[in-house]
Amino acid sequence: MKKCVSWILFVLMLVTLFSTAASAETPSVAIVLANTLGDRSFYDSAKEGIDRLEADFGTVTKVIHCYEDASQYEIGLDQGAQACDIVVAVGWQFWDALDSGVILEDYPDKKFLFVDNGLADRGDNLMSIVYAQNEGSFLVGYIAGKMTKTGKIGAVGGQDSDTINDFIVGYKAGAALANPDCEVLVQYSNDYEDPAKGKECALALHSMDCDIIFQIAGKTGEGVFEAAREAGFYAIGVDGDQKYINPDVIICSMVKDVGRSIYEVVSHPDEYFKGGTIWKADMATGFIDVVYGTEDMPQQVSDELKSEVEELKQKIISGEIVVPTTLE
């Protein structure tokens, strides 16, 4: 009996040994989300990135949800590190968990990637990616400033934080360039997961005469589109190309390509992964852009305006225009 059990254990050990060896050919990747999927912007973009990795390289992927529960952040990272070779912390909320360095010391052989916030010099196995969202927001602000009829445009932000305000300063600067008299009103929903709140915020802005509203609030922004459809004003999407959600009211989207940045780092670790550094994904590298959906969708932004935006984009890339920022 004892012999039998020991044989079974021996075979099991061999099986697990070979199975881990097989999966170690391409590094496996886990994304640990501060909240959960389904926002059709920030978190879903990260998921798209690892889905592409899976399709292109057969990478083993894993998604861990933390549901905005602060007690889960460290546990989530730990789970990710146990299961996979590269752990991507998606969301500024992981700041404290990574800053303490405990996880980084516990798993020295694993690579950690911190998305949407910058932590430098915490060890050779942590790299941060921050995004120049102010540059893309500058361009959509310019579009909104040119297209507004009431002279007032709005933005619904997820919360009064540095990252969200980085969008807003860019948006305001762009609107000011397009139309110096343009007034920009801002509402904070204080929630990224409540579309009903987003709708209320958008309707409140609309009642103050805003006729174009930029959503910067993840899933809450779904309510902004709902309000735009109901009350008849224009909206601007965020993070991904959101125009497909409602092509009649969403005139353009500010793309912050979280998914592609994760894709590039994981697929070319030698080129991109530099431990202890902060990498800024910006317009020049193509991770920030303005998009207008596909050709078959109704286009509200005129071709002249689109070419003006393209010129501005080149000026930002060449450094001729420096967009204000709240970060650094």
Binding site: G38, D191, E193, D194, P195, A196, K199, E222, G223
Partner: peptide, 16 residues
């Protein structure tokens, strides 16, 4: 009313 009157989608924990 929340998912098909005020909004037209269901999201997790939408009762807020």
């Amino acid at each position: 009313y929340l998912s098909m009157g005020y909004l037209s989608t269901f999201t997790e924990n939408m009762s807020a």
